[in-house]
Amino acid sequence: MTKTSNPPGIGWTKRRYGFSEIFIWIPRAYLVLLVLIAIFGTSVGGGWNGNIGKPYVSSSSSHWLGTDALGRDEFARLAYGARISLGIGLSSLAICVIIGVGLGLAAAFGGKWVRGIIMRFTDVMFSFPDVLLAILLAGILMAHSSSDTGLLGQLMDSGILPVVVAISVTSWPSYCRLTYTQSLAIKELDFVEASRAMGAKRSYLAFRHVLPQIAPMIVAVGMVDLGGFILAESAFSFLGIGIMPPVPSWGSMINTARDAMSSYPLWLLWPCLFLSVTIIALNFVGDDIRNRLDKRSSQK
């Protein structure tokens, strides 16, 4: 019997790459490198929050990319910025996926009332501006600063938690809608009906039959959105309503470097470069996943 690699129409498509292969491997390699930098690079040259020294020292063996305006190691701070960006991006994504997919499945399989309430609530949340929410949360943060010294307090004070909340609260509705519409289509397929005719519960149908079919699509959308979330975090930090000093973020580093832009342009370049390349890489990887899922475009 011939062993075909894919079920027709659904699932993962193996793709033959031509020259464009490098556009797949370079972004992937970059992302792996970025994760390594985020994990191991934060203690280079005295660490991201090391002693205050000479400002704007050029790159050397002790400070790979020199020092920032307060004399702290620039590379270590960029690495910590990567950790913040990836951490916030991934945790926001996880929250969005759990809430969005969960409610989307509930809406698709629930009764008329459950569906109505969830989808109208989703519509309302869709129209909520994220910057406004971030400003609101930053305000709450200012009012409550330093009352708690535990992990929660740290997350609040550094601005991480408010940013994650602001991004997740405004972004989960798109996952909910995607899951809902896809589930409605898959729910009508014969094999789901067949399983129902076997006496399966709705929750079983949702998680065992429908969710695996839409999971790859969620991953593809999530990869592209991850870039968006990282950009949003940087934007909030640039505006001063995101990550609070001394914790570095690419956005706040761009803002600081702006002041000395004419004399020290390189210090503006580095965080901008990291931010742009990361987002481009995530988009490439996301597009690749989507292309593999879309059989028509992969059969060229």
Binding site: P7, S195, M198, R208
Partner: peptide
Amino acid sequence: IRGKRVALVMQDPFTSLNPMMKVGSQIAES
């Protein structure tokens, strides 16, 4: 009643099996 007392064989075996599940798991389902 479904599956236990009244079972159904559908028309098209190409669409009535989940393409992402091994047939063993699908038989074990009921």
